[in-house]
Design a protein around this nucleic acid. Structure first.
Lengths: 143, 143
DNA sequence: ATTGAAAATGAAAGTTATTATCATTTAAGG
DNA sequence: CCTTAAATGATAATAACTTTCATTTTCAAT
């Protein structure tokens, strides 16, 4: 999805909720949409402050809540005690390979795994709406 | 693995580390090994206090750290902001189906998924030592 | 059994990340 | 331009986890 498209969706979401589209929200969303990493609130706040210096952590926090509620961002926990936010995958869902030594994170997709997941869930009568698959181990450099 | 076997492993681990096997550790470990749920520190502390009333949260915390370090317990995060501890699966690894409405957790195993995971990781040169697969959705009662 | 050094304990304080509060400022429709 | 509800930023409150410290306990060596 293109940046403008995301910004449009955000604007719509905000208006539908009777909320207001502010400078800070615009800036925070753009900063976030630009990132390719799994960014934390602290890291994002630093970026945002470079563009709008006075911006408070609380505002970044609240805006990321908006973004996750609207489905434009995903929040995840990897193992350090921080919530990290990630952009929607370009195409379909993706999962993570995490190096336990150097903390490198690689993303991957595997449709076969997804299918098996749905099959398995169906056996228990579950309807899956989301999933999380993380493989922990050693990356090529660390093993 | 039988209870006695686990207690033996714990004892060995503790002795090898030059630590001491205390009443509290014995009680906390037994209480934990008895549970079938994903128990939190608070919940476990309640159980332990029924057997050794004075026991402090910090001791339970430290003992569960011992248990996870020694590999006799697994710690997990599901979505409420709590660390939960679970017993080693009886046979192989298992994963979780989590109902987003009623929070029910069902465990399952699927060897085919495991194999695909290893295959996928290998393509990136990763050596997998552990993984986490959680499927979020609606259980039969909630859907 | 007694003793002494090292470790464990429990209470309480300290951390850290997250969430809420509140006085002030701002967006956006009329 | 006004009004008013919402947003902001500073700060306080929470919640879960982790550490500290004075006291107690374990356990190996008497």
């Amino acid at each position: 999805m293109k940046l403008d498209e995301k910004m449009g969706l955000l604007r719509t979401y905000i208006e539908n909720q009777g909320l207001k589209f502010t400078n800070q929200r615009d800036c925070i969303a753009r900063c976030f949409f630009r990132t390719r990493t799994h960014i934390s609130l602290d890291e994002l706040t630093v970026k945002v402050k470079k563009e709008i210096p006075g911006t408070g952590y609380a505002t970044v926090y609240r805006t990321m809540k908006l973004l996750t509620d609207s489905g434009l961002a995903l929040s995840r926990h990897f193992g350090d005690g921080q919530t990290r936010y990630e952009n929607l995958p370009a195409t379909g869902h993706h999962d993570h390979l995490i190096c336990v030594k150097c903390s490198r994170i690689i993303e991957f997709q595997n449709e076969k795994i997804e299918n098996l997941q749905n099959e398995t869930a169906a056996r228990f009568g579950f309807t899956v709406i989301n999933h999380k698959l993380e493989l922990y181990g050693y990356c090529p450099e660390c093993s």
